[in-house]
Simulated assay, not measured.
Amino acid sequence: MDKVQQITRSAMRRASAIEMNPQTRQNLHGLFVNFSLILICLLLMYIIRLLL
């Protein structure tokens, strides 16, 4: 179990050490926002369809 935690910690450290340039971060943020909006719209359409 200690070995698994150690591997997990080192992987997290390596992942957080990776630098992302601001443009990539902004693109990912935009994608996430668009994805969330699409999910909300689909959910609303589903609810409206259930009500009618």
Rank of each mutant, 00 (worst) to 15 (best):
M12V: 09
V33F: 02
Q6N: 10
P22N: 04
M20T: 11
R25F: 08
I18R: 15
F32Q: 13
V33L: 06
L31G: 09
L50S: 05
R25C: 03
P22F: 01
H29D: 10
H29L: 09
R14A: 12
M1K: 12
M45C: 08
I7R: 13
Q23Y: 02
R14Y: 07
D2E: 12
F32I: 09
Y46F: 08
A11W: 08
F32N: 12
F35A: 06
I40Y: 00
L52A: 08
L37D: 03
I18V: 15
M45E: 06
L43M: 06
I48Q: 06
L39T: 01
Q6L: 11
L42I: 02
Q5K: 14
Q6K: 14
L52I: 09
K3Y: 14
L52Q: 09
N27A: 13
M1C: 13
L42G: 05
R14V: 05
V33C: 03
L44N: 00
A17K: 09
M1N: 14
I40E: 03
H29V: 07
N27L: 13
S10F: 13
Q5P: 04
T24I: 05
Q26T: 02
E19S: 15
L28P: 00
L51K: 02
N21A: 00
L39I: 01
H29G: 07
I18C: 14
L52F: 10
I40L: 02
N34A: 08
Q6P: 02
F35E: 03
M1D: 12
Y46I: 03
K3E: 15
I38K: 01
I18E: 14
L44Q: 02
P22D: 08
H29E: 05
T8C: 14
A17H: 07
R14I: 10
S16C: 02
N21I: 01
T8E: 13
L42C: 05
I40K: 00
R13M: 09
L43C: 07
L50T: 05
D2M: 13
F35Y: 05
N34L: 04
T24P: 01
F35N: 05
S36P: 01
F35H: 03
I18W: 15
M45A: 07
M12C: 10
L39G: 00
L39R: 00
C41R: 09
M1S: 15
T24C: 03
S36K: 07
Q23D: 08
L51A: 07
R49H: 11
I7W: 12
M20H: 13
L50K: 06
V4I: 15
R13W: 07
I47D: 00
F32W: 09
K3I: 12
T24V: 06
N34F: 04
D2V: 09
R9L: 11
I48S: 01
L44K: 01
Q23G: 02
I7P: 04
I47C: 01
I38Q: 02
R49M: 14
A15I: 05
L52V: 09
L43W: 05
E19I: 14
